[in-house]
Nucleic acid binder design. Structure first.
Length: 333
DNA sequence: AAAACTCGCAACCGCCTAAAT
DNA sequence: TATTTAGGCGGTTGCGAGTTT
């Protein structure tokens, strides 16, 4: 098998990319990364087109792994670590690029609520997405909201807000974007990254459903760290505890998201959530919204239904205990 | 128009663990 | 068993591009 796919880093499109830096041996290089035979200067910083080609061709012939050997034999003046990172996060053909879909965002929120900052583990359940990308998403989007609210991203208040307002909104989007499908095997008990990314589709299920099944296998799953009470609190069975009622009228739309399937036992069982009232009036996204190519979601603007400002206002209202007005976008109007 | 500021993200750092010696 | 090495992971940094002032 040879990879002939060639992708240019966005940096390569820029005429003013920062230049790679060549370091003499011993200049602030990663601990233990030098062999005694390694005598040449190492490049650091952005990868050049030539370096990418070299790495891609080498892996096409020799396969992945043995990164230090690769670094020495390929002619690249890079550390093995650097080569590995470049390949896994950028050059590997099945790396998906572009904005995260609502479905993916929802899954990240769900999984992070369960596992905390286990980025690589979370990434295993988002085929084609890298841990780095998910980590960046969390830091730039989610933590930003927490900062604006002046609350800790791991605080129960913020988690409640996310669970009550952000996730339902994503579900709303998700409910109207059923064209997005994942090739994920239903039984994920022993799933590995490779299995998720490369195996043929045996059953098409939504990530949320996948997650539900994950949850059902929890006896084999390590528990989240203690300091992560960082799980979202279970949705209250008694909706009177909730900032809104089980069925709220929002701009003329009966918002009945939590009416079926949530309980203390399946707080994350989003897959059983009744989306009908929502999707009936929800905006319809065409393939164009997500990009018709599964590897290209760049056409999808993840914030066009719910802007960050909107979200921030709502979360602020929730944190301050004020009445909530949930905007509802009606594309028919 | 330009300076200041913000954002997104690729790449690096350093710690940890497992495998090899 | 102790030490070394390689690979993996989460945290952090720094730069280009875009936006605001």
């Amino acid at each position: 098998m040879a990879y002939i796919t060639w992708k240019l880093s966005p940096l390569h499109h820029s005429a003013s990319s920062r230049l790679p830096v060549t370091l003499a041996p011993g200049m602030s290089e990663t601990r233990g990364s030098h062999s005694k035979h390694e005598d040449m200067a190492l490049n650091r910083g952005p990868w050049t087109v030539e370096e990418d080609k070299l790495l891609t061709h080498y892996i096409a012939y020799h396969g992945e792994g043995r990164w230090n050997l690769l670094a020495r034999c390929s002619g690249l003046k890079r550390t093995g670590k650097s080569c590995r990172l470049r390949w896994l996060n950028y050059l590997k053909p099945d790396v998906r690029r572009g904005n995260l879909t609502p479905e993916e965002q929802l899954l990240i929120l769900e999984l992070h609520s369960k596992w905390g900052n286990r980025w690589s583990r979370i990434a295993q359940h988002l085929p084609g997405r890298t841990d780095n990308e998910i980590k960046n998403y969390w830091r730039t989007r989610v933590q930003k909201q927490a900062r604006q609210l002046k609350v800790d991203a791991n605080s129960s208040k913020f988690r409640d807000a996310v669970r009550c307002y952000w996730m339902p909104r994503l579900l709303q989007k998700f409910g109207s974007s059923q064209t997005m499908q994942y090739s994920v095997e239903a039984n994920t008990n022993t799933t590995t990254s490779d299995q998720v990314q490369h195996r043929p589709c045996q059953e098409t299920i939504s990530p949320s459903m996948q997650y539900c099944q994950l949850g059902s296998s929890s006896s084999h799953e390590p528990q989240p760290p203690e300091n992560l009470s960082a799980v979202f609190p279970p949705l209250p069975v008694n909706m009177s505890e909730f900032p809104w009622r089980a069925s709220d009228e929002i701009h003329g739309v009966a918002f009945n998201l939590f009416s079926s399937g949530f309980s203390m036992n399946n707080a994350y069982d989003l897959g059983t959530c009744d989306l009908t009232p929502v999707s009936a009036s929800a905006p319809i996204y065409s393939d164009l919204d997500y990009g018709t190519d599964n590897n290209d979601c760049s056409n999808y603007n993840g914030d066009n239904l719910w802007s960050m400002d909107e979200l921030c206002d709502m979360l602020k209202s929730y944190v301050s205990g004020a009445d909530i007005k949930v905007p509802f976008s009606d594309h028919n109007s």
